[in-house]
């Protein structure tokens, strides 16, 4: 699980940098109107694209931390074996969604916008770069879900931790 910790750490650092940049960018937007007296032409667009990245990549991070909201009435009432089966099903469903929509749909979207040479109006960046966060985040969600699927499938190696909130399996 050392690799898992590296992934968490790198992802965390990237997200902190993106979030800090986003904050400074919007403050600059206000400041540029008054301090410099010249409204900035790109801050609005940059802020929106950073939000797409923070939101989508952050969703993968939150998936890794098992923070996404769920209704767990059925899982709570299930037997330990039932819980395991449910965890297998839930993780498989998440994997299928991330694969079909975020990875395959996302790559197709990136491909179309890059192939057709679409650029953003203000910054002029290829829109494919903005959308690239979808397949990236999809792959990370698949990775985290596979880890948790393995924990549910082979409980002997990860005793008792498959359904609790601790992202770090006890070794």
């Amino acid at each position: 699980m050392k690799f898992r910790r590296h992934v968490d750490r790198v992802l965390g650092i990237v997200l902190v940098i993106l979030m800090a940049t986003m904050t400074i960018n919007v403050l600059w937007q206000v400041a540029s109107r008054y301090v410099v007296g010249r409204p900035s032409a790109f801050t609005d667009e940059l802020a929106r694209y950073l939000l797409i990245w923070v939101g989508t990549l952050g969703a993968a991070y939150a998936a890794g931390q098992r923070m996404h909201l769920a209704i767990d009435i059925v899982p709570q009432k299930a037997s330990p074996a039932g819980k395991r089966r449910l965890s297998l099903i839930i993780n498989s469903i998440v994997i299928v969604f991330a694969l079909l929509v975020m990875v395959i749909g996302g790559i197709n979207l990136v491909y179309i916008t890059l192939y057709l040479d679409q650029h953003s109006p203000a910054l002029g960046v290829p829109l494919g770069y903005v959308y690239a966060v979808l397949p990236l985040s999809g792959l990370l969600i698949i990775y985290y879900s596979v880890v948790s699927l393995m924990e549910a499938a082979f409980p002997a190696e990860h005793q008792g931790d498959m359904l609790d909130d601790d992202p770090e399996p006890v070794r």
Partner: peptide, 28 residues
Amino acid sequence: QGLKIRVMESPTAQAMVSIMGGSPTPMS
């Protein structure tokens, strides 16, 4: 001169307001 004018997200529109003397302000 110096007035903040909202323009569309279009480089041409921004350049036009700029060149006329206004401050193009992109805004949703």
